[in-house]
């Protein structure tokens, strides 16, 4: 029984609030979805910043809580079945034992189920949100070094291309 609760504890701790965002032409992300606009979703970085990801590159999202909810549902169902078996018995001792077992399974099962559904719904709602428009703050990476020019980004995923600075030419002056 101790092991069961340890396992449930680990599962709840693991199944926090991170969604897996699968993308085309980009690495997959393990992140918390905070909201979205019509064209982007906003996700949180490890150091607490918020960055935006274009929706057009997202191929799939695995929202958190689904596995937790399924496992919680199975455990809660097991508890319910133990209750049912206890209720059909005519012997009081059997009824007490099965009711206790049913409680032991049903309570953590329902907690897991509820927590999973809440997490899944929160992440799903944030992904479906298309009304939050946040301005782009700044570019923190890929800043051009001295002596280099940067072409303007033509799309959200364009990587700035560094070009060597061309020396300026001055018109020859006419000598007397």
């Amino acid at each position: 029984m101790k092991r069961l609760f340890l396992s449930l504890l680990c599962l709840v701790a693991y199944a926090c609030s991170s969604a897996t965002v699968y993308r085309h032409n980009a690495p997959d992300l393990e992140t918390t979805i905070l909201g979205g606009s019509a064209t982007h979703i906003y996700v949180e970085t490890e150091d607490g910043r918020i960055v935006r990801i274009p929706r057009k590159n997202i191929t799939d999202v695995d929202h958190p809580g689904n596995i937790e909810a399924v496992i919680g549902g199975v455990i809660a169902l097991t508890g319910g079945m133990l209750f049912a078996v206890g209720n059909t018995s005519n012997q009081p001792e059997v009824r007490v034992v099965f009711t206790a077992l049913g409680t032991i399974y049903a309570v953590p099962g329902i907690i897991l189920l509820a927590d999973g559904l809440i997490n899944w719904n929160r992440s799903n709602s944030a992904f479906d949100d298309r009304r939050t428009n946040l301005p782009v703050l700044k570019r923190t990476e890929l800043a051009p070094s001295a002596g280099e020019l940067t072409t303007p980004a033509t799309s959200d995923y364009a990587i700035p291309v560094t070009l060597p600075r061309v020396p300026t030419l001055t018109a020859p002056t006419s000598s007397p």
């Binding site: 396992s7 199944a15 992300l29 150091d47 960055v51 990801i53 596995i67 990476e141």
Partner: peptide, 28 residues
């Protein structure tokens, strides 16, 4: 039950590595 729980969870996530990045989203 514990074995089932852990096997399911591990099957979901254990195979991938996670890289945390400065100022950028975490990749898996």
């Amino acid at each position: 039950v514990p074995i089932l729980l852990i096997a399911l969870t591990l099957a979901n996530a254990a195979c991938s590595s996670i890289l945390y990045r400065n100022g950028q989203a975490t990749v898996i």
